[in-house]
């Protein structure tokens, strides 16, 4: 089922800001297997000129992925039928613990290709004082649901 092209330009924002936790940054760095002390040790980060630890470059996916989920639900796209096509980040400054980040998402492109749907969104992330922190462009490829047998969600089985 092709995505309704009228979604192009559609914008939505999260109701509550995402508050960045020191331990969340550490957990994420552990999960990507990156031992860089700048993600864990405030003194190491200060030696690089930062006021506190910083988050890894791909950390914004934690809240931009979550911010995109309501759109996918609205479009009737199941997670199992999507693969990630492209991802890009443009950073104004690193993310730090205590940041309260607002995320505004805009649908930048919708295009069918060979039976799949390509959906590109831009997430603009700003701090509580309005300072722009990072923008993230995500392209997902939504594939048609396989015909049969009925796939289940895979959750909790």
């Amino acid at each position: 089922m092709p995505i309704d092209p009228s979604y192009l330009g559609h914008s939505f924002a999260s109701d509550t800001p995402y508050e960045v936790g020191r331990e969340k940054i550490r957990e994420f760095a552990d999960a990507i297997g990156d031992p860089n002390p700048a993600y864990r040790d405030a003194e190491a980060a200060k030696a690089l000129g930062h006021p506190d630890v910083i988050a890894p470059p791909t950390f914004p996916i934690v809240f931009t992925f979550a911010a995109n989920l309501p759109l996918l639900a609205e479009l009737g796209i199941e997670l199992r039928n999507i693969v990630h096509g492209e991802q890009r980040f443009q950073y104004a400054r690193p993310i730090r613990p205590g940041d309260r980040l607002a995320c505004a998402v805009t649908v930048e492109n919708v295009r069918p290709m060979a039976g799949d749907d390509f959906l590109t969104t831009r997430a603009d992330i700003s701090a509580a004082d309005g300072e722009h922190v990072v923008s993230a462009w995500s392209t997902i490829i939504a594939r048609p649901e396989p015909d049969a047998p009925e796939a289940d969600s895979g959750e909790g089985r």
Partner: peptide, 9 residues
């Protein structure tokens, strides 16, 4: 410094 990365795609 990881913050040296200003764009990444």
């Amino acid at each position: 410094d990881p913050a040296a990365v200003e764009e990444y795609g």
